[in-house]
C-alpha cells in the first residue's frame, strides 16, 4: 500500500470461524501502520475490528463456521473506514448498546470496546446487503501529516 496515494482500499473475506480472527488482526495491524496510526491507536483498532467480527460469528451466524465475513478497509488522509459485512441474522440495531460497566459480569464488553475506540459506528441493514457495520476512525493532525 503506497502512503502517497490519497485513498487505499483493502478487501478481505474470511470464513466465519474464530480461528481466522488472527488473520483479520494481522491485516488491521498492517493497514493501521501504513495509515500512520500510532502503535497504541493500532492496538485499539485491532481490538475494535476483532470484537466486531467476533460478534458476527456469535450473534449473526450463531457460531456457524461455514459462512463468510467480508471486510473493506479504506484508508485516506483524514480517516480509516472499515466496513464489515455479513449475511446472517439481521440484528435489532436499536437493541445494540454497550452494557453498564458497573455491572461486574463476564461478557457483553465487545460493543463497549467498539464504541469507545471508534469515532463513528453505524449499521446498514438495507434489504439485499445483509448487515454492514461501518466503523470510522479519524486521524489526528500528526497522523494526517505522516500519511502524506
Amino acid at each position: 500500500m503506497s502512503s502517497n496515494a490519497p485513498t487505499d482500499s483493502v478487501c478481505l473475506t474470511v470464513p466465519s470461524h474464530a480461528r481466522y480472527l488472527g488473520l483479520v488482526r494481522k491485516v488491521i495491524q498492517q493497514v493501521s501502520q501504513e495509515g500512520g496510526f500510532t502503535e497504541d491507536e493500532g492496538r485499539k483498532l485491532i481490538l475494535a475490528v476483532d470484537e466486531a467480527c467476533s460478534n458476527v460469528i456469535k450473534h449473526s451466524y450463531d457460531n456457524d463456521p461455514t459462512k463468510t465475513i467480508s471486510l473493506t478497509l479504506t484508508d485516506s488522509a483524514e480517516k480509516l473506514e472499515i466496513r464489515i459485512q455479513d449475511f446472517g441474522k439481521r440484528p435489532d440495531v436499536d437493541r445494540i448498546r454497550p452494557r453498564d460497566l458497573d455491572e461486574v459480569r463476564p461478557g457483553g464488553l465487545g460493543t463497549h470496546f467498539i464504541q469507545s475506540i471508534m469515532d463513528e459506528v453505524t449499521y446498514d441493514t438495507s434489504p439485499g446487503v445483509g448487515c454492514i457495520l461501518h466503523l470510522v476512525k479519524y486521524k489526528s493532525p500528526q497522523v494526517r501529516h505522516k500519511h502524506r
Binding site: 470484537e51 459480569r105 464488553l109
Partner: peptide, 14 residues
C-alpha cells in the same frame, strides 16, 4: 493480545 472473551474469562476467575 486479549479481547473481551479473555477479559470475561478473568472476570469469571474473580
Amino acid at each position: 493480545y486479549m479481547d473481551s472473551s479473555g477479559v470475561a474469562t478473568l472476570v469469571e476467575g474473580l
